[in-house]
Write a protein that binds this DNA or RNA. Structure first.
Lengths: 122, 122
DNA sequence: CCGTATCCGTATTGATACTG
DNA sequence: CAGTATCAATACGGATACGG
């Protein structure tokens, strides 16, 4: 499924970095999680994330749009309404890597905390 | 395997962020990948990553040590020798989330590029 | 409500030079 | 070789105020 074609791992590493950059920015993954259900209005996304500034939220949404992970739909109504939703690609990222991270932490949280304590004590 | 205990996703999100922080720093995941085989000396790790400064490499290694993802073994020899290796915890992170990211990108690289092009054009 | 513009504090990266 | 110290550049997250 994933041949390790490069002897020294450089090619694999570069692919890995490209993928990690999608998750590197603080709020991007959280926006994806927030959109796992229904499409949400901008304000709803902001509330779901807790305390995030308008500027940072806009940047995150633009990145996600630029990478084709979410879609933006604008309705021409009196009170402006815009809805963001996951694309199939965005959903695959949620169901794959993102869920893998969550599952890993759920299964190794105790080990991680123990290791952190041990390292701090030593 | 992963119950979604929080109705609004906040708990899940926090766990996710804790896990993502382990992968957020630029070089940390790459160091883990570099150590997937044998234990490596500091210099060997540095070379494996390409062009990384001593300072940044030290910071990355210290973080990985503090989180119990790698071990450091020092040999009392004439030319100083230090070897870094993955812990079982670090290896589980490599085999789980890290591999998931790599596999996802390998399987969706074409979609990602197409979406990026489309977004740029529109 | 949606989104942009401006300004700021901090964190991260990195180059360089130096010590054990 | 291993690791630290110092300094510069910049990217990031964020608060605030303003415009569509």
């Amino acid at each position: 499924m994933d041949e390790d074609r490069s002897p020294d791992g450089l090619i694999v590493d570069c692919q890995l970095r490209a993928g990690l950059e999608l998750l590197a920015h603080t709020w991007d993954p959280l926006v994806i999680v927030a959109l796992r259900g229904e499409p949400l209005r901008r304000r709803a996304v902001k509330d779901a994330l807790g305390g995030v500034s308008d500027k940072v939220l806009t940047e995150a949404l633009h990145r996600l749009l630029a990478n084709g992970l979410v879609t933006r739909r604008s309705f021409a109504e009196a009170p402006p309404r815009v809805e963001y939703a996951l694309t199939p690609l965005g959903r695959s990222l949620l169901d794959g890597p993102l869920r893998a991270v969550g599952a890993w932490l759920a299964g190794h949280a105790d080990e991680l905390l123990a290791a952190q304590d041990a390292a701090q004590a030593g």
